[in-house]
Amino acid sequence: MKHTYNIEGMTCTSCSAAVEKSLKKVAGIDEVSVDLENKQATVEMKQHVALSELRETLPSKYSISQVEETNNFNNTGATSTTMMSNNVEESKWQQLKPLFLILGYIAAATILLNYSRDNWNGAMLDFMGLFFIVFSFFKILDLQGFPESFKMYDPLAKIFPAYGWIYPFIETALGLMFLMRFEIDIALIITLVILGITTVGVTKTLLDKKSIQCACLGTALKLPMTQATFIENAIMIVMAVVMLFIL
Rank of each mutant, 00 (worst) to 15 (best):
M243C: 13
V238W: 02
E90D: 00
L58V: 08
T4M: 05
M83T: 04
V67L: 00
A41Y: 08
K222E: 06
Y163N: 09
N86H: 01
R55Y: 01
N74L: 09
I111A: 11
V200I: 15
L141D: 00
K151C: 00
I194V: 11
F169D: 03
D35C: 12
I166F: 01
G218N: 11
F73L: 12
C15I: 12
L125T: 01
F131V: 03
Q95N: 13
M152K: 00
L206H: 07
T76Q: 11
V193G: 06
V26W: 06
N233D: 02
A234G: 03
H48E: 02
E44G: 10
I231F: 01
Q95C: 12
I7A: 05
S211K: 06
I64N: 05
S16L: 02
M177W: 09
E53V: 15
L188G: 13
C15E: 07
L99D: 01
P147K: 04
L192K: 09
N6T: 14
A215S: 14
S65C: 00
Y5A: 11
N71M: 07
A162M: 13
V242E: 04
N114L: 09
K24G: 15
C15G: 15
F73V: 11
M239P: 08
H48S: 04
W93E: 04
E69R: 10
L188F: 13
H3R: 10
G218P: 15
K158S: 12
I231Y: 02
E69Q: 06
F138H: 09
D118A: 15
P59S: 07
